[in-house]
Design a protein around this nucleic acid. Structure first.
Length: 268
DNA sequence: AAGTAGACCCGACGAA
DNA sequence: AGAGTTCGGGTCTACC
């Protein structure tokens, strides 16, 4: 579930720990989330360091610690971040907890599709892989030109599938991809080679608009999106298109392995 | 099921 | 014609 707005929400959940020192790191060492960074390395790197800042980039997060300590997190499908009491005992799905002075920073993930990375840099700079992530949708680097080049590069791929490609649209996930297609009235199955120039520009605009809206509504305090979004109707059987002059029954089908929802009338 | 790494398959390119 | 420790696009599945 976590797409860029939910990621932004979760990133902030650890804020109460800013400025505090990690006294102890609790782990379930065999949990799959440690596949890229062994639990021992995480414990060693973070114990004694002070939590100084956090960053989000698409679906990725980076937590910054004193003296060049960097903890990268990806939430996968079921990852969650929150704080707990300092004497909290880790539950089964709480695979990582950073124990500070008076609270714990907890990473829970019951399906363990999430993962973490650990980097310690000499110069205190963020690790290279972080700096080299593709431009964020709301940054200047996400230009109309770059967007058009990316879309034109995969002419056989359906637009919806393309929107899920993190190299081109970092942070877009399943519901946002459908929301974007719906707002510009393009069927998600349309292969991008069939898109006109104006449609590609509309796609660029809608991608930015949906990202901004989602971060404002969900990213701040996980508010419920308004009824006017496709999001509110997409999961239930027999949901209807929220557009006032439409109200057609929404369709759902598998597209390249992902559940896809669209309005047959608005996105004919 | 809201995510993705990796295996697989395919076609383009065009060696000696 | 058609190599290949190719290369990149495109699809599917395992992960739990």
């Amino acid at each position: 579930m976590p797409e860029l707005a939910e990621v932004e929400y979760y990133r902030k959940q650890w804020n109460p720990g800013l400025g505090h020192t990690v006294h102890k790191v609790l782990t379930h060492p065999n949990a799959r989330i440690f596949r890229d960074a062994p639990a021992t390395a995480v414990r060693k790197a973070l114990t004694g360091r002070t939590f100084s800042a956090s960053h989000a980039h698409g679906k990725q997060m980076m937590f910054e610690f004193s003296d060049g300590g960097w903890l990268g997190l990806h939430l996968g499908m079921t990852g969650k971040l929150y704080t707990a009491a300092v004497d909290h005992k880790p539950e089964k799905s709480e695979h990582l907890a950073l124990v500070l002075d008076d609270l714990q920073l907890v990473f829970s993930d019951y399906r363990m599709f999430g993962k973490l990375t650990i980097d310690v840099t000499d110069d205190g700079e963020a690790p290279d892989w972080w700096k080299e992530l593709p431009p964020q949708i709301l940054d200047r680097g996400f230009s109309k030109k770059r967007h058009e080049q990316f879309v034109r590069r995969f002419p056989k791929t359906p637009v919806k599938t393309l929107l899920l490609d993190q190299r081109g649209f970092p942070g877009i996930g399943n519901w946002m991809a459908d929301e974007i297609c719906w707002r510009i009235g393009i069927a998600p199955q349309t292969v991008s080679g069939n898109l006109t120039d104006p449609q590609i520009e509309a796609l660029w605009k809608a991608t930015r608009k949906v990202s901004r809206d989602a971060i404002r509504v969900i990213g701040s305090d996980w508010s419920d999106p308004p009824q006017s979004w496709l999001f509110k109707h997409r999961w239930k059987n027999g949901g209807n298109c929220p557009r006032k002059d439409c109200r057609s029954e929404l369709l759902r089908a598998d597209l390249r392995g992902r559940t896809t929802c669209w309005c047959p009338r608005c996105q004919g």
